[in-house]
């Protein structure tokens, strides 16, 4: 795939190279209409909900806002969310790098099928993602009797929540790295090996620096999703207060307790996380577009 650089990344160069505008662009009013449509659409569907979260969170002042975070249940939810992400994200990072290495650096039979299977969790409904773990680890499930016998609690406890989170974020790192590593090919690693490096050494000193920004980018998105997952976690959580409620579940609980300010306050924490994610993501895209993805700026 050819490298593509959006013209807007180089506004000055673009201005001098640009052919007569009317030939390759639309007339002024069409252009501004399209811009207006796009901006209005995004404002209505994306920006307004975001603004609502913060507006509702601060509806009764900063004191009520802060009170939402003084509850022990809120602390427990924050802690659980952090623990879950702290396990799920590194797990998927290791998996993603390993899978990308196997898939991008080698040609083997069934490679495309493997990529499709890794992609699968992406299109599975979150509810189904939770359900399958209930079917395996629930008391009525396949491993249920064995787990009861050995006194191991998977669902309705942290391991189940982590598993469901790993499932829904499973493809993120691998998907990002596979095309990137494919594009980079194997020449540099081969050179390192020829010069006597071990495989691990070649990976650390050659491959990793090449994919670092892409990796960071993928981890960022993976983390946002891991901390925000609702449907799958909701099915396996059991909603025990102070024990198995993650932040998104805590938002729902507060909402159902008529505690709307607190609910939106906690939601604003997650929305803030989303905003930080978007900012870092955009910075990465602007500065390291070519190091992030094969071709420019592709998910």
């Amino acid at each position: 795939m050819s490298e593509a650089i959006a013209p807007a990344d180089f506004p000055a160069a673009e201005a001098s190279l640009r052919p007569p505008a009317s030939v390759v662009t639309e007339t002024g009013w069409v252009r501004w209409t399209l811009i207006a449509v796009a901006v209005a659409f995004l404002a209505l569907f994306l920006v307004l909900p975001l603004v609502t979260v913060f507006a509702q969170a601060f509806a009764k002042g900063i004191g009520a806002y802060l009170a939402a975070f003084s509850e022990p249940d809120a602390h427990a939810a924050i802690k659980l969310t952090l623990i879950t992400a702290a396990i799920a994200v590194p797990f998927n990072l290791v998996f993603g790098v390993t899978a990308a290495w196997a898939i991008a650096k080698f040609q083997f039979w069934g490679r495309d099928l493997l990529v499709t299977l890794i992609d699968l969790p992406f299109s599975v409904s979150p509810v189904v993602s939770g359900l399958i773990y209930v079917l395996v680890f629930g008391s009525q499930g396949l491993l249920g009797p064995w787990l009861i016998e050995h006194d191991i609690q998977i669902i309705f406890a942290v391991p189940g929540i982590v598993l469901a989170t790993i499932f829904v974020t499973f493809p993120f790192v691998a998907r990002q790295l596979i095309p990137l590593m494919q594009e980079q090919g194997t020449v540099e690693e081969e050179a390192a090996l020829t010069l006597g490096a071990t495989g691990w050494h070649a990976f650390r000193t050659v491959t990793l620096p090449n994919i670092r920004w892409g990796l960071l980018y993928a981890v960022l998105l993976c983390n946002a999703r891991a901390m925000g997952e609702f449907g799958a976690v909701s099915v396996v959580s059991g909603h025990i207060r102070g024990l198995t409620n993650t932040l998104p579940l805590h938002v729902e609980i507060l909402y159902n307790e008529y505690n709307f300010v607190a609910s939106f306050a906690v939601a604003s924490l997650l929305a803030g996380l989303a905003l930080v994610t978007l900012v870092i993501k955009s910075v990465l895209e602007w500065r390291y577009a070519d190091d992030i993805a094969a071709g420019a700026r592709r998910h």
């Binding site: 909900p49 975001l50 901390m227 925000g228 938002v251 939601a267 997650l270 929305a271 996380l273």
Partner: peptide
């Protein structure tokens, strides 16, 4: 990036 539950209540 926005959790779906947050989007839902908003």
């Amino acid at each position: 990036a926005l959790p779906t539950a947050v989007a839902g209540i908003a």
